[in-house]
Design a protein around this nucleic acid. Sequence first.
DNA 1: GAGTTGACTAGCT
DNA 2: AAGCTAGCCAACT
Length: 113
Amino acid sequence: MSDIADLTAKTYEIARLIPPGHVTTYGHIARLAGYPNHPRHVGNALKALPEDSTIPWQRVINAKGQISPRGDAGLGVARQKDLLEAEGVQVNSVMGGGEVVDLRRWGWFPEHV
DNA sequence: GAGTTGACTAGCT
DNA sequence: AAGCTAGCCAACT
């Protein structure tokens, strides 16, 4: 079993632990999983999820608190924003089409799980 | 099998 | 305060 498969599994496992109404970052999940230098793969693992997955991928955003775009003209971003707002997370629109969450208020950053 | 890409970050300018 | 650079490493071309 490769380390990466382990990280992918832990990414999903940790994502499920994020409480509704909170968000965390790619880098933090990578750290909790024990792979502090692999934040990119966390994103890669999440983008591979099917749309009807039970994993709350919408609660994972980047370290700046922004919803990362994926070159689909913002469709995925809009869907993610909807899901977060439905849980009570405030998502602020930024000029240019970006969406941002205040990590000081909605962030979930446990030391370990 | 080498080069490019990316749902990232931390640090410097 | 906002933007750029370097570092990172698996997946894809």
